[in-house]
Amino acid sequence: MSDPNRLIDAAREAMEKAYAPYSRFSVGAAILGESGRVYAGANVENAAYPQGQCAESSAIGAMIVGGDRKIREIVVMGGKPGDGILCTPCGGCRQRLREFAAPETQIHVCGPEGLRRTFTLGELLPHSFGPDNLDF
């Protein structure tokens, strides 16, 4: 495991730039790619709710454009300071993360004040279906 502080800082900065005028619930995410580069993303809402984009999806898109294809580690940050509520990836994002991450990949769940809890992807998405299920 790396020191997640640079990921936490990147997720916090992304969260501050989120576009969340409807829910007023900003989320930031930061991915450590296989190259060691950090890719950040924020949630982007839309008046037609299903058309919005989660922070994790934004960060994955940045990672792909940046040339990486594997997630080594990720931070997801949401909530208010001290509220103690865990802002874990939604079900759809758990599956998106599975496309690029292994079950043992660490997901650090943070609030604006910092780390609240760390999970593995396997804990959040047990018995998942992923690229290895499609033996090409």
Rank of each mutant, 00 (worst) to 15 (best):
I64S: 01
F136E: 12
P112A: 08
N133R: 14
M63V: 09
F100Q: 03
P103L: 02
G78V: 09
T105A: 09
S128Q: 10
D83P: 10
G84A: 11
G91N: 00
P112F: 08
A55Y: 05
R37L: 14
H108P: 04
Q51W: 11
V76L: 06
L32P: 09
P81A: 09
K80Q: 15
N46Q: 02
P103S: 05
V65L: 02
R117L: 07
E104H: 04
Y49H: 14
A40Q: 05
L134G: 08
I74T: 13
I71P: 05
N46V: 01
G67S: 04
G61T: 01
E123K: 09
L121I: 06
G111K: 13
G61P: 00
I60M: 03
H108T: 12
K80S: 15
G41S: 02
H108A: 07
C90V: 02
E113K: 10
E45F: 08
L97W: 01
P131V: 15
A55P: 02
F100R: 05
P131R: 13
C93V: 01
L86T: 15
M77D: 05
E73S: 04
R117W: 11
Q95G: 00
I60Y: 04
G114Q: 03
A40F: 06
D68K: 08
V109Q: 02
I74D: 08
E99C: 07
E56M: 11
Y39H: 12
E123N: 08
A30Q: 09
L124Y: 05
P50M: 10
L32R: 15
C110N: 01
Q53E: 14
G114A: 06
A48K: 13
I74Y: 10
V76I: 04
Y39M: 07
E123L: 08
G111E: 15
C87E: 10
R117H: 14
S58P: 06
T120P: 01
G36M: 09
D83H: 13
T88D: 05
C110V: 00
Q53F: 06
R96Q: 01
C87S: 15
G33M: 05
G84E: 12
R94T: 00
L124S: 06
K70G: 04
N46A: 02
E123C: 08
V75T: 10
A101Y: 00
V109T: 08
F100A: 07
I60D: 03
G92S: 00
T120R: 03
